[in-house]
Amino acid sequence: MAVRMEEVLSRRTGDPSSTDHPGHRLELSTEDGVTKIFGFWMFLVSDVLLFASLFATYVVIYTHTANGPSASELFGHDVSGFLAETLALLTSSFTCGLATWEMHQGRAGRLKFWMIITLLLGLTFLGLEITEFRDFVSQGATLQTSAFLSGFYTLVGTHGAHVTLGILWMSLILYQLVRFGLNAVTARKFYIVGLYWHFLDIVWVLIFTVVYLTGVM
């Protein structure tokens, strides 16, 4: 690990503050960082396509309730649940942005603080979602009940799986920041997991609108 980091750092393109990027863009200070961040945007495009197919499936089948509960029956009786999930995730996207901002100021301590807050909000979101799913299943609304519910659990569950992965991933980056400190490599790693986190918030905004709000309309 140390060898690789030193090798990467030896490929630094000189003083970062002398380039187009101000010195505070540590994650862009190496060729390696720029390339990997670009590569991550390519991954996000493919992830958009995954969610596009799940959204397309959902909007096609969501009226097919097969005598099971409809979207308005399921989501309408407790709208505070999905609103709380939304606010938790929106706030975590904000705190993740603050973490990136502190990283750009070179303040590793505050970066770690906001990462921990972001992780806690992510766990809150996940807890609310698991509670919601358990509540739905206890009302007899399972994955097998209807086409609508298969589409619902697959779409929202795939997003939840992404959040779970994001929490594990960000925890590991937090560990690396504690262990190795803030440098060009750890800055790039945190910047990328931050992009992933904001992206999950974007997907949730669409789920909030297309699944929940349209459901209770």
């Binding site: 010195g23 200070s29 929106l90 904000f94 100021q105 400190g181």
Partner: peptide, 30 residues
């Protein structure tokens, strides 16, 4: 395990001392 120190970070001139744009983005999204 050698410690790799981050390069000295200079605050760019005119750079905000408070993340106003993030607060604005959060307020807008809420």
């Amino acid at each position: 395990m050698s410690m790799v120190r981050p390069p000295a970070l200079e605050r760019a001139p005119g750079q905000a001392r408070f993340p106003w744009s993030h607060v604005a983005g959060y307020a807008l999204s809420i």
